[in-house]
């Protein structure tokens, strides 16, 4: 759990630095990938229309990387602190293990945005976003939400129980 959180924080910080240093290269790579898959991205051969499609898809890729950076820096420290609360305040071992597993999965949520950034290039903007949302973002984000909700309930029950 601690390793996952520290790894995600380091990856998020590195992504931010790389995005700043390699912005033109990332943009060129994204544009080239879109142009190389005209059918998937629905390019029509009209310069004006195609330029808009390329720009929108490139923007989605950059947004994915940006979300990876911000979510990794924001969510991983929170998950680490929440997992510490679980270790401290949640008594039964199975419940503790279950919550830690949920938080470990939730901590991987920011990595889904890396897949998002690549999926929009490889599968098309709408298909890529839909697939990643359904298959990765929702389950991992759901695990984090479930973990935080269960922790809140565990803390509330503890408060109501005997001292």
């Amino acid at each position: 759990m601690v390793f996952v959180a520290v790894f995600v924080i380091a990856l998020g910080a590195t992504t931010g630095a790389l995005m700043s240093l390699l912005r033109p290269q990332i943009e060129r790579y994204a544009q080239a990938r879109v142009i190389a898959r005209p059918a998937i991205h629905g390019l029509a051969g009209s310069a004006e229309y195609d330029a808009e499609v390329v720009a929108r898809t490139t923007f989605a890729t950059e947004a994915g990387l940006s979300f990876l950076h911000t979510h990794a820096e924001g969510l991983a420290p929170l998950v680490l602190l929440a997992a510490s609360l679980v270790a401290t305040f949640v008594g039964p071992a199975p419940a503790r293990a279950c919550l830690q597993a949920l938080f470990a999965l939730g901590c991987l949520f920011p990595l889904a945005y890396l897949v998002y950034a690549l999926a929009v290039l490889e599968l098309g903007r709408d298909a890529g976003i839909e697939l990643v949302e359904r298959a990765i973002l929702t389950p991992l984000g759901g695990a984090a939400i479930l973990g935080f909700a269960a922790l809140a309930i565990a803390l509330a029950l503890r408060r109501r129980g005997p001292a």
Binding site: V2, A5, I9, E73, G74, P77, L81
Partner: peptide, 21 residues
Amino acid sequence: HMHAEGMGAVIVTTTLVATTL
């Protein structure tokens, strides 16, 4: 504003991990 808030939390959590592990 955003980076200072984020890095404050990152400093606390990661130095906690470093000091312990």
